[in-house]
């Protein structure tokens, strides 16, 4: 059987969030199992199941090269721009 990653929307207005995985023969079975395993206490209003093999992930060993360039671009944040006191808030 295949490994499926399970994502659940806790309530409308929120993103689906990864909660774990399970084994199933097809997406339908994965959905049914996910309902029993992950939503016994009204934890969700919507479930996504994704075959684990279909996920492409970034490599943690390259995370510096990937994510650090964002660190020195502080001009992307509003606090980079001082405001005159009179203007106060923007």
């Amino acid at each position: 059987m295949k490994l499926y990653e399970i994502f659940i929307r806790a309530k409308s207005g929120l993103n689906h969030r990864h909660v774990g995985s399970l084994h199933a023969a097809d997406p339908q079975m994965a959905l049914q199992n996910a309902r029993d395993v992950y939503t016994r206490r009204e934890e969700g209003v919507s479930i996504w199941v994704v075959e684990a093999a279909a996920i492409t992930a970034s490599n943690p060993e390259q995370s510096e090269a990937w994510f650090d360039p964002a660190a020195d671009k502080i001009y992307r944040h509003p606090t980079f721009y001082p405001l005159d006191e009179e203007v106060d808030n923007m």
């Binding site: 059987m1 295949k2 199933a24 023969a25 097809d26 079975m29």
Partner: peptide
């Protein structure tokens, strides 16, 4: 488990 596997194969 066997039935599930055969089902998966058929799908």
């Amino acid at each position: 488990r066997k039935a599930a596997e055969i089902y998966q194969q058929n799908q």
